[in-house]
Structure formats: C-alpha cells, structure tokens
Simulated assay, not measured.
Amino acid sequence: MKHPFAIVALLALAGLAAVSQLYLPLPLLPLIGRQFGLEPAAASAALGAFSLAYAAGFLLFGPLSDRLGRKPVMVGGLLALGIVTLLLSQAATPSQLIAGRALQGLATAAFPPAALAYLAESMPARLRLWALAWLSTAFLLAGLVGQIYGGMAGQALGLAWAIALPCPIYLGAAWLLARLPREQRAASASLGAHYAGLFSVLRKPELRGVYAPALLLVLCFMAFYLGLDRYQGSALRAAGLSPLATRAVAVPGFLMPLAVAVLLPRFGAQRMVSAGLATAAAGLLLASCADGLGLLLLSSVLFVAGVGIGVPSLIARTSALADASWRGQAVSLYTFLMFSGASLGPVLAQAMNGLRASTYFAALAMLMGGALLFSLPRSQSQAAAVKTH
C-alpha cells in the first residue's frame, strides 16, 4: 500500500467528522426545542432517531462491504452522508428533522465497519495496530469533539450552519478515497449468503466473549455521563465547570488507544481487554464512593481510560479472530452491539433515576465487572487462540 500514513489520517478525519454527527445535537437540544416548538423529551427524539438507524445500519453495510468491497461502501456512505446532511440543515418541521436524522445515521453507518475492515486487511502488518488505534481514537474523540463543536457552532451560527459545515469533509474524503486503487478481492458468496452468515458469526463462542463486553462498555459510558450531569451537574457548575469542560477533563483517557497499539503486541488482546474492562470498573467504583469533585473527576479519567483501552482491544480481537471472508460481518455485529449500547445507555440511566448517586455508579461498576468476567476465555484452547492475537 502506498502512503499508508496519509490513508490512516484521511480515514481518521472522516471517521471523526462522521461519527461526531451522533453527538452534535446534545448541547443544542434547547435550541432544537425552541426552533421546532418541541418539549425537551421530544427534541431528544432526534438524537434517538440517529443512533437507532446508525446501529441497525451496521448489519446492512458490513455484509455489503464483504460482497462489494470496502472502498465502494465507504465512498458511497460518505457521499450519501454529505447530501443527507445538507438536506437536513434545511429541515423546517419536526418530522423532517427526525427523518433526516434517521437517514443521516443510516448513511454514517456505512463508514465505521468498512473502514475498520479496510485497515485490518490493507495495512502492512507492522502498521496495522497503529492504524486501528488511530481510527478507534477518532471514533472515541467524536463523542467529545461533536459536543464541543455543536455547542460552539450552534450558538455562534445557528442550527442549520452547525449541521451543514462538516459536509465538505465528507465530500472531500469521498473524492480522495475514490482515487485509491480498489482493493483486490477474491470471488465471494452471494449477498444473501453474507447476510445469512451473520447468524453463524454469532455462534462463535470467542466472538460472543467480545460482543457482550462491547455492548456493556459503551452502555456504561453513556450512562456514566448522564449520571454525572444528573447527580453532580450543579456542584460542577458551581465550581466553574460546564458539562463540556467536565468531559474535556477526560481527554487523556480518549487517547489511550494509541497506547494500546504499543502494548497489545507485548501483552496480547485478551490481557488488554481485561485491563481495559478492569480499569473502567475501577473508575466506576471510585465514582460510587467519591466524596469530592476532585475524586469524581479522577474517576471519570480512570473510567474513560478503561473505555479507551477496551474499545480498540476488542476491535483487534474481532478482526484477528475473523476470517477475511466474513470479517465485515464480524465487525458489523461488533459495531452494531457497541452502538446499541449507546442507545440503551440513556434508557438504563432513566430506569435508575430514583437511585442515590453512590448506588447508581456502583450498579454500573457491577455491570462492568460482569463484562470482564464474560470476556474471559472459556477454555484453555480458546485462551491459546486468543493469546496468539
């Protein structure tokens, strides 16, 4: 592959800009409510429309990329995202807004599974982990960058411009990716066989040990920050920390995928997954017993560091355990479950609304501990297989 570093930079930038659309409306919900005459709960439906379509889209586009190739799916998805986003910026009614957000989520879903599989297949072996780490970092940072950009651009320029401004990135990235040589792909089964293969992927026990932790990891990530805002929001604001500043404190944790690229070849995927989940559980446990803002912010850094270690390590296990002929399916199921967790996180947070703060974060710590136990190999043979990756 020529210019691998430029290709990784291009995919990371495109991934950051695309996935940021999931989080962009969070600081703009009051503005959306005023502009469209919606109550806060109804305004948040725009966010849910994106995340549900986004998660479901992974099941569509992963097998499609196995059949058609990674590059055509990435290029088509970015082109569709650019067009849909431009149309969404002109939405004039609540129904147009929610429908546009759903289409936007579906278009965005074409990029992550195809990009992850593309790097796993196309990068030289010595750069593969670094490439996956940078792309994982971009996806994680999107949760922070999307909210910061949305808040700043929405207040300065208005909702329409905040939505539309990233479009040149999508269209420009699609144009640059289209100029790359198409990857060499062997003849594969029919598209129907690829979709049917999703069920056979679920029957692989080693991948089940990846999927359940991925769902719980991102579910707890969403629920953690919702709980932080609910229980400590007023205290943090009194200390001069806005919700966005509170999230920015955890930036070092978002950069942990880059450390994973160094540590994973030495310690193996299983140990790195265990380290990530254990670190996340420790952060949640610290949050449950924190008696001051200092410890609480430290717990957020520790928890996000665990997420930053866990996400790329789980992706590396998925890519390594999956054969090239069904890697897109395996990555699709992984990303589907991961972002299903993002959709279920607010539901869980609402269901635990009546709990005390300490009990709330302790419950999340127990879920994370369960994810750690579920990720452990079930047999010596499986452990040996995982250790090689």
Rank of each mutant, 00 (worst) to 15 (best):
W134R: 01
R182A: 14
R247Q: 14
G197Q: 05
K2W: 01
G62V: 01
M1G: 12
G240L: 05
V262E: 00
D291A: 15
A330N: 01
P124L: 13
S44A: 15
Q21V: 13
A109S: 12
L207H: 13
G227W: 03
D66P: 05
M1P: 06
L24D: 04
F36G: 07
L119H: 03
L31Q: 15
G57L: 07
G227C: 05
A117H: 01
R317H: 08
A120K: 01
V386Q: 05
S343D: 04
G146N: 04
G268C: 12
A156N: 06
T279W: 04
F267K: 08
A80Q: 03
Q155V: 08
L86P: 06
R179W: 05
S299P: 05
V262C: 00
A384T: 10
A245T: 13
L258G: 10
G370D: 01
E121P: 07
E206L: 14
L176V: 13
V249F: 14
A342D: 02
I309P: 03
G292N: 15
V201T: 10
I315E: 02
I169M: 12
L216N: 00
L264C: 03
T137Y: 00
L314W: 09
Y118D: 01
S95L: 15
E39V: 03
L293G: 11
P63G: 08
A46S: 15
G77H: 06
L202P: 00
A362G: 08
D291W: 14
G77L: 07
A117L: 01
S200N: 07
L258E: 12
G143M: 12
L263Q: 04
M338K: 00
C167Q: 11
A142P: 02
L68Q: 07
S274N: 13
P4A: 09
